[in-house]
Design a protein around this nucleic acid. Structure first.
Lengths: 202, 202
DNA sequence: TTCTTTCTGCACCGATCGGTATCTAAGTCT
DNA sequence: AGACTTAGATACCGATCGGTGCAGAAAGAA
């Protein structure tokens, strides 16, 4: 057992890594993985390329960490929605969170998990795969939650958790695209409401 | 009136411009605007940079023309759907076309109109704006069609054409994102069916 | 103080970006 | 035939890409 705590030998870094990561996340959110150059990123983070490299590894690692921060920050609505007591409330909260996060006035429009890298050349394929996995993970969590709802009788026995999860993700992803195209919060909330009008049990 | 027909002075081009454009469209579809380099494009088109430049202008123009071709080719389902006799059939055909086009085994997964450029740096902003306009146009056409349906009594008087169009585009865009992430045709068709279960009049 | 370690700023790397100049080959016109 | 016009191929342009080497400054340990 080593006492490595509170003894970072050498000159301590002169910037707040958390805040720098936040800034990087916003750049990726707005410009996507390939659209965000190191110059864009480091100037927004307020540090040099070398400092970024030392603190975060490389562009891919930075993106991964920015995605984690996004998950725990702006996209935390998803985890919160999963804890709602009923399946209907889960669905409602999930879409409402999607709407409000993709249309926040102080953040880029849309969803980092969608527009970060939907299609790319070779250089961005890693980010693309990471986001596919990210969306798959969100869908799996919804599916498990709805499976539990079926088991608990909260959803009718005929309900299909797989389909419900896929449906919800589809609407949420569509909302993200709409938001990126300039749709307003109230317009998208109406869409979210409409998409839940046939939620089981009918 | 000039007889410019059938008299292209100079050496005729040695490639089929239509087919070259088709190939370019597929590259943009798969890799997005920024992810598709001139090298990717011209090697897929089977021509040199100079020939591409002479025939299509530049990368932006090529993208625009590829988008036109996409609209009249793979995305022609949208125009066809608008001609269906009832609003319900319009909606059903629109989503079915979206599903089949985004999951064609011989084409890239997803929709060029979505993943071509959802977010980008400065260099891709023109393409990004072009796709926003493209999606807005599709939505406007749906809205007009549904307005007509309300006027004709095909939709109930309380139906909101704006909301219905936005809802349909949202689901279609979500389907495109799902397809880009590897969802299968039957999975997405189920989603399309589910999303129309509460179509007016209920 | 001295040593060690790390951060910072700058210049720089090879590769690739979108876009061209140049030269030759190939076709149509007079 | 010869003039004229354009396609095609090669090599190249300046700019930018992601990523580094290096020198010096700064801070903790001894």
């Amino acid at each position: 057992m080593e006492n490595t705590r509170k003894a970072p030998i050498g000159r301590p870094r002169g910037f707040d890594a958390d805040e720098a990561l936040e800034r990087a996340m916003l750049v990726f959110w707005e410009q996507g993985y390939e659209g965000a150059s190191l110059t864009d990123l480091t100037s927004a983070m307020g540090i040099t390329r070398k400092s970024m490299y030392a603190a975060f590894g490389n562009k891919e690692e930075l993106f991964r960490k920015a995605l984690e921060r996004y998950t725990e920050g702006p996209a935390a609505y998803a985890a919160r929605a999963l804890e709602k007591p009923s399946a209907r409330e889960v669905a409602t909260a999930f879409l409402a969170g999607s709407v409000s996060t993709t249309t926040r006035p102080d953040c880029p429009a849309g969803c980092l998990g969608v527009q970060g890298s939907l299609a790319s050349g070779d250089s961005g394929r890693v980010a693309q795969d990471a986001l596919i996995a990210w969306r798959d993970d969100a869908r799996a969590r919804l599916r498990h939650r709805f499976q539990r709802a079926v088991d608990e009788g909260d959803l009718p026995p005929g309900a299909d958790p797989e389909l419900l999860a896929r449906y919800l993700m589809t609407v949420a992803n569509g909302i993200a695209v709409q938001a990126a195209g300039g749709a307003t919060r109230s317009e998208l909330q109406q869409v979210a409401d409409a998409s839940l009008r046939n939620w089981p049990p009918v």
